Amino acid sequence: MKPIFEYTDYREWIRDAFDDFKQRKTVISWRYMAMKLGADPGNLLRVSQGKIHLTLSLVKPMAEFFELDEKETAYWTELVCFGRAKTDAEALNHYEKMQILKGIPLKRLAKKELEFYRHWYCNSIRSIIGICRFKDDYEGLAESCTPPITVEEAKSAVKLLYDLNMISKDRDGYWKVNDTFVSTGGNWRSEAVRTFQKETIRLAGESLERHAPPLRDISTVTMTFNMDDIALIREKIKEFRSELLRMSQEGNGDDTVFQLNVQLFPIGFAKKLQEKAK
């Protein structure tokens, strides 16, 4: 089992800790653990399944049950609070504390860094520079984006990337991508990132008319699931996305920048109709 400091989802840690405990010590059941914690076994199971949140009164007892040390308990406490956060500010506050306990100082997103997410083409230009030689042909750089952007936008994006230390010039004057990259930090939600997501979703819709079928793969399918299975479906999407990221990182001779949007959202609730039919 990986260290608790590598987790950002407290429910995932509970499931892994439960399985690890069962393998290392003795037979264990949710009922047995609930009895030791003074909790309802059904609720404890629902917590592990992502259906409800763990009550704060059980945070310390669970830390003691799994024999966490002082630092692990502190991280575990912030991890639960992070998962229960209802606002962006609250989530970021607990996430920062988690990073400090891990020994990683969190770099707050400054105004310029947030600006990176407000314009979809900043990410595109950074990726283009990473796979081709670019010096000062801003007209060509602007036309390389799809849809094309203005020369002024291209120049502004390059300056922003430089200010953020995302790109730099080599000795021949060509721009190159640096290893540093701005992250919003795990599950922390920011308005700038949501704006970026809205923009890429809009671009995905426009791609139906802008790009020929061989250059895109946009398909739709309507399915029905039990709401209890949504956590598992989200995990499957995460695994799929991680595999494609690995392929991208290991690839050679890349010549095109792609944007992947995986979209899963409800468009109908049968439960409401069923309730009315009763």
Rank of each mutant, 00 (worst) to 15 (best):
Q259Y: 07
Y75D: 04
D69E: 10
S207T: 08
E243A: 14
A277M: 12
L232P: 05
A74F: 01
K86F: 04
I4D: 05
F21R: 04
R216A: 03
R241E: 01
I218S: 03
G173Y: 02
L37K: 08
D88F: 04
G173T: 10
L68G: 05
D254F: 09
Y7C: 00
R24V: 13
L44A: 14
G50M: 10
K112Y: 07
G185C: 00
M35S: 15
D254W: 08
R118M: 00
K102V: 05
I201M: 08
P148T: 04
I201R: 11
V193R: 11
W13D: 01
A34R: 05
Y162G: 07
L58C: 02
M33T: 14
F196C: 06
A142T: 09
N93E: 14
D228H: 15
E143R: 15
T55Y: 13
K22M: 02
F116G: 00
K97G: 00
Y121C: 07
E90K: 06
T180F: 14
I28P: 01
E153D: 06
F21E: 11
K272M: 06
S29T: 15
D172R: 13
V193M: 13
D228E: 14
Y121H: 02
D9R: 01
S190T: 10
F240C: 08
D136R: 08
R118I: 00
D16S: 10
E70C: 00
R108S: 12
F82T: 01
F116K: 03
R133F: 12
G140S: 04
L68R: 05
K60T: 14
E275G: 05
V177N: 03
I267G: 02
T200G: 02
F116A: 01
A110G: 15
S242G: 07
I131E: 05
W175S: 02
K112D: 07
S168R: 13
I14W: 04
L79P: 04
E139P: 07
R216H: 00
D136K: 10
